[in-house]
Design a protein around this nucleic acid. Structure first.
Lengths: 229, 229
DNA sequence: GCAAAAGTGTTACCCTTACACCCATGA
DNA sequence: TCATGGGTGTAAGGGTAACACTTTTGC
């Protein structure tokens, strides 16, 4: 009676390289059909007994070896079928990871990190998915301190600032930024200093998870968008 | 090889009754299996040759007779299958319509408008979908003047205010509200007055579509959320 | 000493909020 | 005239944006 479809799960994997201070995207060069030789998102198919979330976890774990990663459903896409003769839909997920804490991934297939503005063209509607994921990521940084998923456990204020600048594609005032973040009470200054980036050395911070959980309930604004010039 | 699923499209249909000043939800009492006798969202199945958006349009048109309705994808749900023996997923859409401009719907099945706080329990995961749709609707009222889809072509400031109060479940200051809306330039005051709601009569407004399109590009804030008391 | 990054402080301005007051009109 | 809803104005407060200045330390 009703038509049946196979359900692809496509994963947009964002990573922040806090040394290069660049937001990156993990893509694979397909060594299988269809679209062999092209770049694409990590992908897999939904199994009958699992939920979307479970499938996204499984696919990400299988392809990168990572578990316990932040994953969020982005959108469901219909239309362009990866296999010409089967009816197919896709559900896109995006994931956030810290690059340097997970160096030994990128194993399966030919996976490679790309900076956003030099990424290759992707197959199917994957470019559309990435564009939507970036917008979602921006929105999330306002409502939630999602950026902490992308940073190492201990980080400097500069790294946090650069992360936000990368996500938004614009610069923020360094002084106002740290003031805002500090008044929110969502990060904790440690006694350690990082001396890699400056001669003076800058304090390391860690994320205040308890404070965040408390604030999340009432809803808050993390960083406001700069006014258009 | 890969498992196959049928794809349900579930429609959350919001309507604003500008006479009763109530936000309502259109639900159907199912006269078919599964879940016969229970209340549920309008639903249908995706066909092989159509997109999600097309399917949502088709299902809404078939069940209500309405076309050209604002529809937006909400979320994709896996798990609870309407038919026990088939693997099924659902993609939820929400629609916005003005109740009194479309009086002759509610025909197919036993459709009925419910106020949000007195709606019946729904089958499957439809309650979860409705909850998410309300949150989405709130967010949209901030970013976009989506509320105008729910009002008649000509409306009073009071009706617009009441609509926002219904969506947010809280009261706004009448004077600040109209000031804010006016400065945005997104509505146009007409020379007509409506005398139904008051003795003095209140001006009718219409939506300034051109201004909106212009503003949409740069991104704007329509109405800000009141601070939690 | 000098350069470079980090830390702290100050001010102006805009937007929101919380109000008060007047107007028009049917009963 | 009075009650009711409608229209307009003003002042205080909070938060952001735009700045300047000092500190630390390797070279």
């Amino acid at each position: 009676m009703t038509d049946h479809f196979n359900v692809a799960i496509d994963c947009i994997i964002f990573g922040f390289d806090h040394l290069e201070e660049k937001l990156k995207l993990l893509l694979i060069k397909r060594d299988f059909q269809p679209g062999k030789g092209s770049w694409s998102l990590m992908t897999g198919f939904l199994k009958a007994e699992e939920s979307f979330d479970e499938a996204a976890d499984r696919i990400l774990a299988f392809q990168t070896g990572l578990s316990n990663i932040y994953l969020e459903q982005l959108h469901a896409y219909s239309g362009k079928s990866p296999h010409p003769n089967t009816k197919s839909i896709a559900v896109a997920y995006y994931a956030l990871i810290n690059i340097h804490e997970h160096k030994n991934l990128s194993t399966k297939h030919s996976a490679k990190w790309f900076e956003l503005d030099t990424r290759p063209k992707l197959i199917f509607d994957h470019d559309e998915m990435v564009a939507k994921a970036i917008l979602r990521l921006r929105r999330r940084t306002i409502t939630r301190p999602i950026g902490f998923r992308l940073l190492p456990k201990k980080f400097t204020m500069r790294q946090l600032l650069r992360l936000y600048e990368e996500i938004w594609g614009q610069n923020f005032d360094r002084r106002n930024f740290s003031k805002k973040v500090n008044t929110l009470g969502i990060i904790i200054k440690l006694d350690e200093k990082d001396r890699n980036s400056s001669k003076k050395g800058s304090y390391l911070f860690k994320f205040n998870k308890e404070k965040f959980i408390e604030m999340e309930k009432s809803g808050f604004t993390f960083i406001s968008k700069k006014k258009p010039a």
